[in-house]
C-alpha cells in the first residue's frame, strides 16, 4: 500500500517539478523505465505466486534498469542504437505481457 502511494507521489512530483532530463540520459531513460516496469510486473506476479522476495525484487529492479541502459549505450557506440533500443523494448514488453497474463490467470482464473 505504501509503495503504491509512493508511486503516485513520484508521478505527482514529476508533474509538478517538470524535470528536464539531461541530454546524456535522454536515450536511456525511456528504456530504463520500461525495464523497471518489467521488474514491477514480475514482482506483482511473484506476490501472487507467493514467492515474493524483497531482496530479489530490489536487485532485479536495479539490474534490469542498468542492463537495459548498458545494452542501449553499447548499441549507440556500435552505431545501432535505435535498433538496439527497439530490440530491448520488444523483449521487455513481451515479458511484461507474459507477466500480466500470469497475474490475470491468478486473479481472474482466465
Amino acid at each position: 500500500m505504501i509503495p503504491a502511494i509512493g508511486l503516485i507521489v513520484g508521478i505527482l512530483l514529476g508533474l509538478i517539478l517538470h524535470p528536464t532530463v539531461p541530454l546524456w540520459l535522454q536515450p536511456y531513460l525511456p528504456i530504463a523505465v520500461v525495464a523497471a516496469l518489467d521488474a514491477v510486473f514480475g514482482a506483482l506476479r511473484s506476490v501472487l505466486d507467493g514467492i515474493f522476495n524483497d531482496r530479489i525484487f530490489v536487485i532485479s529492479f536495479l539490474s534490469n534498469v542498468v542492463v537495459a541502459a548498458v545494452i542501449v549505450f553499447l548499441g549507440d557506440q556500435l552505431g545501432v542504437g535505435s535498433q538496439m533500443s527497439t530490440g530491448v523494448v520488444v523483449v521487455l514488453s513481451m515479458r511484461i505481457f507474459a507477466n500480466v497474463a500470469a497475474i490475470r490467470r491468478h486473479l481472474l482464473k482466465a
Binding site: P3, G10, L13, L15
Partner: peptide, 18 residues
Amino acid sequence: LTAIFVLLGFATTAAISG
C-alpha cells in the same frame, strides 16, 4: 520499496515530458 516506486513514478513522468 516506497523509495523505488517514488523513483519509478518520477522517472516515468520525466521520460514522458522529456
